[in-house]
């Protein structure tokens, strides 16, 4: 499989405190890779850094073979990386349709392309709410909307930051099914989670980070064989 995203030696700081130490990541085209770790382990920072949202990071990020280090976020987005932040961040004053409109980008060759109708098939709840202001939707509906909004940009890689956080277990199951469809459409996915329960069946490989360092890389089966890492680094 061809390498789509490659992160090498990523370092980041908050003020004077270093929060990421030489993080290495690789995501191949078509894969679902799960980034595991507890709150504060550095998952959000890693994803935001890939997206160009963190100032002053050091390290190398390649996407589709070209370096994207130091590019502004909108350039990175236009190259085909979609970003779904952890706290949803829908535009609460805008309607569902308007939220989707903000995410719209021209279709990209080689990446799965989405129409609003396809997205409403993926997230049926949204179809009835098109004119509803996002601020008046439930947490679960907002989560669906942020993902749909990102897919409007026809990304080839999606970064999902703790998508299941705070959702009712029932909705988590729904979300996992949607992710399955996305994967089947050919989308590559890097998803961060506090534990491997979510997206267990979809995950091809996983990384575990703890205190800003990569502690583990491998399949979930490998991880199951390492209870020491599971217990020390994960919220399971």
């Amino acid at each position: 499989m061809s390498e789509l995203l490659a992160v090498r030696g990523l370092n980041a700081w908050y003020g004077r405190a270093q929060v990421l130490f030489d993080i290495d990541l690789r995501v191949d085209a078509g894969e679902v890779v799960t980034l595991l770790g507890r709150n504060g382990a550095g998952k959000t920072t890693t994803l935001a850094a890939v997206m160009g949202l963190i100032p002053g990071v050091r390290g190398d990020v390649h996407f589709g073979g070209a370096s994207i280090s130091g590019l502004p976020p909108h350039r990175i987005a236009r190259l085909g990386i979609g970003y779904v932040p952890e706290d949803r961040r829908v535009f609460s004053d805008l309607t569902v349709d308007e939220n989707l409109a903000v995410g719209r980008q021209p279709p990209r060759p080689g990446a799965p392309s989405w129409t609003p109708q396809a997205l409403f098939d993926l997230f049926p709840n949204l179809a009835e709410l098109r004119r509803r202001r996002a601020g008046q939707m439930s947490g679960g509906e907002q989560q669906m909307l942020t993902i749909a909004r990102t897919l409007m940009g026809h990304p080839s890689l999606v970064l999902l930051d703790e998508p299941s956080e705070g959702l009712a277990p029932r909705l988590v199951e729904q979300l996992a099914r949607a992710l399955g469809t996305m994967k089947a459409e050919g989308l590559t996915i890097l998803v961060s989670e506090q534990n491997p329960r979510f997206a267990r069946s979809l995950t091809d490989r996983a990384y575990v980070i703890e205190k800003g360092r990569t502690r583990f890389e491998g399949t979930l089966a490998d991880l199951d064989a390492r209870p020491d890492i599971r217990d020390a680094c994960l919220a399971v």
Binding site: R38, G40, D231, C233, A235
Partner: peptide
């Protein structure tokens, strides 16, 4: 306990 390890929780 959000975000804590099982032992800490």
């Amino acid at each position: 306990t959000a975000g804590m390890a099982p032992g800490e929780r």
